[in-house]
Amino acid sequence: METADCYQVKLDVFEGPLDLLLFLIKKKKIDIHDIPIAVITREYLKYLDRKDQINLDREGEFLLIAALLIHIKSQMLLPREKDSREDEDDPRRILIDSLIEHQKIKAVSGLLKDKEEEESQRWKRSFTPPLSSPEEVELAEVSLFDLAQSFFTLMKRREQENIKLIKEKEYSLDEKMKEILDELKAKDFLDFFVYFEQQESLEEALLAFFSILVLIKNRIVVAIQEHLFHTIKVWLRKEALETKRP
């Protein structure tokens, strides 16, 4: 717990704003019907003044409770006509109810935590991950659409790099295909993303992309995605290896 970050009420030491009130009620240190809102809010404002950094989540939560408390206080200060619906309308009633509800939820979440701990030590077939071996990952062959989309995102990224270098080198599709195949034979597979990052120019990257498309079309390589949203890998097809295409 980040106790150092927590707002400490002067009345006692507490963890958080909502917890503070819960604690007060539980311990009956302060009667819920007599919450010294002025004290709490004044102290809290002083505390905020002293701080140069605040935790929005925590302070936001406190603010909500504080606002409710101030609302109650204001209601108490105004002279009120006594009416029969007093109990229903009493804002304190609402606060107490929600606090009790919150206490219950806290109790249940503690219970669930224990159950979770207990259950996490029981292994069931559905929760047991398979013993992982690199070859047995679930592979999904990707569609042309996936490839194209990945390619365009990559190109978008590269556009921003502002390429200044202009090369006079001529590229040919055949050469590029041969280059890819050579690399595949040497390396087992190509990482689609990494490979395109390596291309020196947009032209070369485009050519590489077309080469891969041609290779896929001719069933020489296969593009596979191991997990959704992961990189796409290009593999040499085993059949193609055996028949050795030109």
């Binding site: 219950k104 939820i105 806290k106 249940v108 979440s109 219970l111 669930l112 935590k113 979770e116 701990e117 996490s120 047991t128 991950p129 013993l131």
Partner: peptide, 23 residues
């Protein structure tokens, strides 16, 4: 055996939310 150091547990916020939904 499964090379799992610790199983991921739910956060206190998640547990509390689940408790609220459950009840």
């Amino acid at each position: 055996l499964l090379q799992i150091e610790r199983k991921n547990k739910l956060s206190p916020a998640a547990l509390e939310t689940l408790a609220a939904v459950a009840y």
